[in-house]
């Protein structure tokens, strides 16, 4: 359990004069579910954007499986094994649910454009494998019956599930979930928590941004807390719940109310 999948080392991210992240250190260990919480505007999504290469940090280093990934192209980072979902759902709306997921599964294919034109045996093999994997993942997320529907026509909750399926399709070593339960009702949240645990049990490592405290306390192995771009706590759920600084950050809103 001690192997670190991802390490953020002294990450500072400035936009103009605004410091979105200030000297953030964070370690994600292999096989765990780490929740990243904090009030709105604390910089959680910025952390995701720094990890996935959307932003290049002003200073600091991101080490993924022992290798610095700062400055690497976004698609290379995904290929290395980091996949994410988006807070404001960003599916390929004009593509079917299945196509969305297969697009993710294509990441590790070797076939290029020429191979596809001529339909080489490898291309056929990979097409078939990716399709099967996509169907498997749709089934896993419980949305297999949506396979043929366009992304934009899926019900809201299924869109969120489809995003997770699409991210899983890239076979990530680290899965980043950005508020996957936003807009879910309590029953759906419980189901989602189970799904996330199952994802972990299948051997994936999960970094989760979430607002819903009951969900976080239910699934997380560890919790890290951001406030105004600074990490103020990091530890087990009980440790964090009792941390005075965390309580202060959520001033007036006790950490267990939600």
């Amino acid at each position: 359990m001690s192997e670190n999948v991802l390490e953020l080392k002294n990450i500072t991210m400035k936009f103009g004069g605004v410091t979105a992240l200030n000297e953030v250190n964070l370690v994600v260990k292999k096989g765990e579910i780490l929740a990243l919480i904090g009030p709105n505007g604390a910089g959680k999504t910025t952390v995701f954007n720094v990890i996935t290469g959307v932003y290049k940090p002003t200073s600091g280093d991101v080490v993924f499986q022992g290798e610095s990934i700062v400055g690497k192209k976004r698609f290379k980072i995904t290929k290395l094994g980091i996949a994410r979902t988006f807070q404001n759902i960003r599916l390929f709306g004009e593509s079917s649910a299945l196509e969305n997921v297969v697009t993710g599964a294509d990441v590790h294919s070797k076939t290029g454009v020429v191979g596809s034109i001529f339909g080489t045996p490898r291309s056929r093999r990979e097409e078939k494998a990716n399709l099967e994997r996509a169907l498997e993942l749709l089934d896993f997320m419980g949305i297999k019956k949506r396979a043929g529907q366009l992304g934009k026509n899926l019900p809201y909750g299924d869109q969120r599930r489809l995003e997770i399926a699409r991210a899983l399709a890239t076979n990530p070593k680290l899965l980043l979930l950005d508020e996957p339960a936003a807009g879910f009702n309590p029953a759906e949240k419980v189901a989602l928590a189970e799904t996330i645990k199952k994802i972990r049990d299948a051997g994936y490592t999960v970094l989760l941004i979430e607002h819903d405290m009951s969900l976080i306390m239910g699934v997380s192995d560890r919790v890290a807390v951001l406030d105004f771009g600074t990490k103020i706590a990091d530890g087990s759920t009980t440790e964090v719940q009792n941390d005075p600084r965390v309580i202060e950050a959520y001033l007036g809103a006790p950490a267990d109310a939600s």
């Binding site: 976004r74 698609f75 988006f86 960003r90 390929f92 993710g104 990441v107």
Partner: peptide
């Protein structure tokens, strides 16, 4: 298809 619909997400999906 992915690029046409959302270039940023396409990149983040490893394209």
């Amino acid at each position: 298809d992915a690029i046409r619909q959302d270039d940023d997400v396409a990149q983040l999906m490893g394209i």
